[in-house]
Design a protein around this nucleic acid. Structure first.
Length: 575
RNA sequence: GCGCUUGUAGCUCAGUUGGAUAGAGCAACGGCCUUCUAAGCCGUGGGUCGCAGGUUCGACUCCUGCCAAGCGCGCCA
């Protein structure tokens, strides 16, 4: 059930039978102000303009053709030609009952399910995960959950960086340590430090650098010993990633890992196929693709290099191979990339080439869900090599510690185990929500305090609303599920409408890949509940009112729980 | 030079194919815990939506130019 869609169907039909052009839309939106009703139709004015007609006159004809008597108390014409729709409390009550009866809150499943590949997280295995990986990992994961929820088949793909130049130096360093497996594992527990040591030696020890370069060649040639060493390194790195994903409550597992190296054998074929289709141009010894759509005002075309003059391949080649795999082997209809905005040009080139070369179908949806770069307080990007990064593990540990301090202060009567659970859930939730609730594709400045805030529009606020409701139910005693749901108080009505709008938020998130819309919805829902909670006593009310309010509380808890789950944030029975 | 992205309250940000008087949170100030969890609620103040034009009944939203910031542009990923 989606109120906006329902009204859109009815009113658009009425608009057309009132004389508007076929395909005209009523443009239904949630009303900007309470006095304008619950929903407003903005499309009449545009349609009237096309008909060269007085908009209020057309609005009148629309009303004549419209029967919303089951749904709405009144539909009135306002201002230059808005239609304001006031929904019927009885109708709202019935929809709330429907939602209470359904596992998934009576949210519509998509009529045409797609297979959607979602490329996210994609850490470089040479280094420990740092805060720069947070956005991709968390936002991508939320979109996986949302698309699944409405009935799409989702295939997550963790395109980890496990191949290329820097692995030579890592292998050389591993080899020279000549330690047993256990001790080596210890050394690698700090991947970042290990990488720095290797890099340092690479820069100052010529012999070591030489060995490192040899390792790259041997690795790419498939040398068995080398591969074994490499595999050992990869396993330890992936274990580190798994630990982070588990702490973060992110769905990714080893099954979703499809590393860069996995496409190694396809790269020759990619070049051959591009060549066959006459898309290749050799320029200064390198093989490039020039496409007209990347021509600037100065008539120069930005090339995409797919093979170096020395025969080596680049990430464009790997990305093309990945696209073909996702289309041909995974049957993707839609492929989403949750990747840093700096790769925008690169990805758009790869998308264009893939279509031109028919590596994907012409109607395969390829979308770069870009986000801004993580910046330091100085306004410059976080350096990855000077130790300027904040490790993801440190951030999560700090978050849990701060949350623990707060729980100890707020709720000392909980036993220690429960306080720790609360601290974990609240701390991780706060970190995730800080990222999920922002849509900005602009750069953002990393800030501990913002990230770990527990007040206002944060995950703990939503978790708190949920926990308050659970507390009520612990004290409620017997609930009469047959009692009618009656909407009397203004706070009840406002909460009721909001409860029915989850599907509208989900609809947008699924289309645009913007979880902040869902965050915003949940924040408003929790806010409406808090107002209701303060204004309308539940347990002290007379039994019919009490039961009705309990139903509202119940559905609020279910809706908050579902919404938070879609964001990958957990709820608590008490906090 | 070319291209992409961004510019909204002191700070962090919303603003859904152009809609009614631009909204939240934080911070500031004032109220509310003998009553279902005060991580909360209610209220007050705070704006030249970067600047200038244009399109129209109507522009934060679309177009053009300019200013500012960030990023990207042939052999790293």
């Amino acid at each position: 059930m989606n109120i906006r869609q329902l009204l859109d169907q009815h009113i658009s039909a009425a608009l057309i039978s009132a004389g508007a052009a076929k395909g005209s839309s009523a443009v239904i939106k949630q009303s900007a102000k309470a006095k304008f009703g619950h929903y407003q139709a903005n499309g009449v004015m545009g349609a009237a303009k096309k008909l060269q007609m007085n908009p209020r006159k057309l609005a009148n004809k629309v009303l004549e053709a419209l029967d919303l008597s089951d749904i709405a108390d009144k539909v009135e014409i306002a201002g230059p030609g808005f239609l304001n729709i006031h929904l019927k409390p009885e109708w709202l009550s019935q929809r709330l009952e429907d939602a209470l009866d359904h596992e998934t809150l009576n949210i519509d499943q998509v009529t045409e399910p797609q297979t959607v590949v979602i490329d996210y997280s994609g850490p470089n295995l040479a280094k420990e995960m740092h805060v720069g990986h947070l956005r991709s990992t968390i936002i991508g994961d939320a979109i996986v959950r949302v698309l699944r929820f409405i009935g799409h088949t989702v295939i997550p793909q963790n395109h980890v960086g496990d191949w290329g130049t820097q692995f030579g130096m890592l292998l050389a360093h591993m080899q020279s340590l000549q330690t047993s497996k256990g001790e080596l594992s210890m050394q690698l527990s700090d991947l970042e430090g290990f990488y720095r040591e290797a890099k340092k030696r690479f820069d100052v020890e010529p012999d070591f650098a030489e060995t490192a370069r040899d390792y790259v060649v041997k690795l790419q040639a498939g040398d068995a010993n080398c591969l074994m060493l490499w595999q050992q390194f990869i396993d330890i790195s992936l274990q580190h990633c798994d630990d982070v994903y588990t702490s973060l409550n992110v769905l990714l597992t080893r099954d979703d890992v499809m590393p860069e190296s996995g496409y190694n054998d396809d790269l020759v074929q990619i070049i051959t196929d591009l060549d066959k289709q006459e898309l290749l141009t050799e320029d200064q010894g390198a093989k490039c693709v020039f496409l007209d759509e990347f021509k600037g005002k100065d008539d120069k075309i930005l090339p995409a290099i797919v093979q170096k003059s020395n025969g080596g391949y680049l990430y464009a080649t790997t990305d093309l191979a990945a696209l073909r795999y996702r289309y041909a082997k995974l049957d993707a209809n839609r492929i989403l990339y949750f990747v840093d905005a700096r790769q925008s040009l690169h990805l758009n080139q790869v998308f264009a080439i893939a279509k031109k070369a028919n590596f994907v179908a012409q109607d395969t949806q390829l979308e770069h869900m870009a986000f801004g770069t993580m910046m330091g307080k100085n306004g410059k990007p976080f350096a990855t090599r000077d130790g300027g990064t904040v490790k993801l593990i440190s951030l999560l540990t700090e978050a849990e510690q701060r949350a623990l301090d707060l729980v100890n202060e707020k709720n000392p009567e909980l036993d220690e185990t429960e306080r720790k659970t609360v601290a974990h859930t609240v701390g991780i939730g706060a970190v995730k929500y800080a990222d999920l609730s922002k849509n900005r594709s602009s750069d953002y400045i990393f800030n501990w305090d913002t990230m770990l805030s527990f007040e206002g529009n944060t995950a703990p606020y939503l978790q708190y609303a949920y926990a308050r409701i659970q507390s009520i139910f612990r004290k409620a005693g017997e609930i009469d599920h047959n009692a009618p749901l009656n909407l009397q108080d203004a706070a009840e009505k406002q909460l009721a409408v909001k409860l029915l709008q989850l599907s509208e938020a989900v609809e947008v998130v699924a289309k645009d890949g913007t979880p902040n819309i869902l965050c915003n919805y949940l924040f408003e829902l929790a806010g409406n509940f808090m107002t209701f909670y303060e204004a309308c006593p539940i347990l002290k009310a007379e039994s019919d009112i009490k039961n009705s309010r309990l139903k509202l509380a119940k559905l609020t808890a279910q809706t908050l729980g579902t919404g938070l789950d879609l964001l990958g944030i957990e709820t608590l029975e008490r906090m």
